[in-house]
Design a protein around this nucleic acid. Structure first.
Length: 467
RNA sequence: GGCGCGGUAGCCAAGUGGUAAGGCAAGGGUCUGCAAAACCCUCACUCGUCGGUUCGAUCCCGACCCGCGCCUCCA
């Protein structure tokens, strides 16, 4: 079965394959770097990560471009206020964003590109639009006349036809012919950064950057354009208008939108005090994997209710998965092979993949895996699992972790190394053997303080890091 | 008003026209120097409400109630 993805454009789940060769050309709207990313932003980027990882797991190559919006009204306003250049203002947030991505184990897209490095491309695109008679100028700014693009509204499934006639003046100081017309190039304002170009001294509007950068790196028709739901309109609608008016070709074959995250049942906002960055959550003592697991566990088209109960549940779930992996790798199983065990593993792998193929149904995929783990644990307890059955299970877990990536613990800086833990664990075993339980318990307590849990099993003592 | 999404056990959540996955929590048990950890078992006659279609509906249709998103910057 092919991978099936929901396409906002057609409002249907469709079979997906790249248009040409084996490379998926995808563009994902990245962050505006005026602040630290919050967990809501990160939910969207986690969904994009799951998407790209699953495409790759299914044997495709990805050419994934993510933009960094490093110029917009908010950035300019704040930078001017602080008396720094927009570059100096955005630079640390851009770095922080890339750091957060790495912390959350979000794979780096093949290309991460800045808006301000592509002013020339944007200007060319605006010039092409002007040549086609789609733009108009007002007060030194250039606008897109949506009346010239009859398909306007096809992505967000809105009919704007009736509104074209009712020309209004926008509330800001720019004159527009139609309320829906949007700015491509903003005239320079005194005291604000600008670029002196053939179309004037000014700065780009928000929408043009994505069209320009996407087409520069990925060609006129992308396989996938992804982003948060809120971008569907107007941002993505405008991208379509800009790009297709110039090329006459579909801008993207698949439009994939990730739902938002809410916090404790409410929209996240600073005024409600439920606004969290990744850094905030990690400071509370949670591991990045727990955040990643929680963000990935709800299918991307559903709203995700981020709660601390949910985060704790994620921690415990990860432990269950890791415990199983640990058992698989440390238990001694009888020689030979059990046919039922292999059959169960093969079927679970197939069901896991089928769930992921089904529009990235991560909740279902996790269900398959947990059910498999319970059944396999039972088989292990009752002797229905042999040494030769281990390898396929290891492969199944690897397949799972290829996309979820939560099995490997994050080792804190300055924490105990594996070798140091091994040594202490061995010392405790010796103390136990000598029936020096006081010493043994002391070591156990000491390790626990460092987040290391010791487990005495039939095969001996093993240890693990707390999730 | 327009477009769209959702209401499944204490919480999160999958799902199908044929009688409810999974995770967490809770209760019980196995194991153990004690403990911890681990593992196992139990846990929705019921899927917002009311009608309809059907041999049969949580899943299809209609109405209604509730919550939410977008239509303005926003992941």
């Amino acid at each position: 079965m092919p991978i099936r993805l929901y396409n906002t454009l057609t409002q249907k789940v469709e079979d997906f394959a790249p248009a040409s060769d084996n490379t998926v050309r995808m563009y994902a709207c990245g962050p505006t770097v005026y602040n630290f990313a919050h967990i809501g932003n990160l939910r969207t980027f986690t969904f994009q990560d799951i998407l790209r990882r699953w495409l790759r797991a299914r044997g495709m190559e990805t050419l994934h471009v993510m933009n960094i919006t490093d110029v917009d009204d908010k950035i300019i306003r704040t930078a001017v206020q602080q008396g720094v250049s927009i570059f100096d203002y955005t630079k640390p947030y851009e770095a922080a964003f890339l750091e957060d991505m790495a912390t959350l184990r979000l794979q780096r897209p093949e290309k991460v590109v800045r808006a301000t490095d592509h002013i020339g491309e944007m200007v060319s695109l605006i010039q092409s639009l002007t040549e086609k008679g789609i733009t108009y100028e007002s007060d030194g700014s250039i606008y897109y006349r949506i009346a010239k693009f009859p398909e306007y509204g096809k992505l967000s499934h809105n009919d704007f036809g009736g509104m074209i006639a009712g020309a209004r003046v926008d509330v800001d100081e720019y004159e527009k012919e139609n309320a829906r017309d949007f700015v491509l190039w903003k005239n320079k304002k005194e005291g604000e950064p600008s670029w002196d170009t053939p179309i004037g001294d000014g700065r780009p509007g928000w929408h043009i950057e994505c069209s320009a950068m996407a087409m520069k790196y990925l060609g006129e028709t992308l396989d996938i354009h992804a982003g948060g739901v809120d971008l569907t309109f107007p941002h993505h609608e405008n991208e379509i208008a800009q790009s297709e008016a110039v090329t006459g070709k579909p801008f993207a074959r698949f439009w994939i939108h990730g739902e938002h995250l809410i916090v404790e049942g409410q929209k996240m906002s600073k005024s409600l005090g439920n606004y969290y960055t990744l850094r905030d959550v990690l400071q509370m003592g949670y591991q990045p994997e727990a955040v990643r697991y929680l963000l990935a566990s709800v299918p991307y088209r559903n709203k995700l209710n981020f709660t601390f109960d949910g985060l704790k549940a994620a921690v415990t779930s990860i432990e269950r998965l890791r415990n199983f992996e640990l058992r698989l790798k440390t238990d001694k199983f009888p020689e030979g092979s059990n046919a039922d065990a292999d059959k169960r593993t093969a079927e679970s792998l197939a069901r896991f993949e089928e769930a992921m193929d089904d529009d990235l149904n991560t909740a279902n995929a996790l269900g398959v895996l947990f059910e498999f783990i319970r059944e396999t644990n039972t088989a292990m307890d009752s002797g229905g699992f042999n040494a030769a059955n281990v390898a396929p299970v290891v492969a199944l877990l690897a397949r799972f972790d290829e996309v979820f990536d939560i099995l490997k613990p994050t080792v804190a800086e300055g924490g105990l190394t594996d070798e140091a833990i091994d040594a202490l664990a061995a010392e405790r075993v010796a103390a136990k053997k000598a029936r020096d339980f006081a010493r043994a318990d002391a070591i156990r307590a000491e390790l626990l303080e460092q987040g290391i849990i010791l487990e005495d099993t039939k095969e001996g003592t093993r240890w693990k890091r707390k999730a």
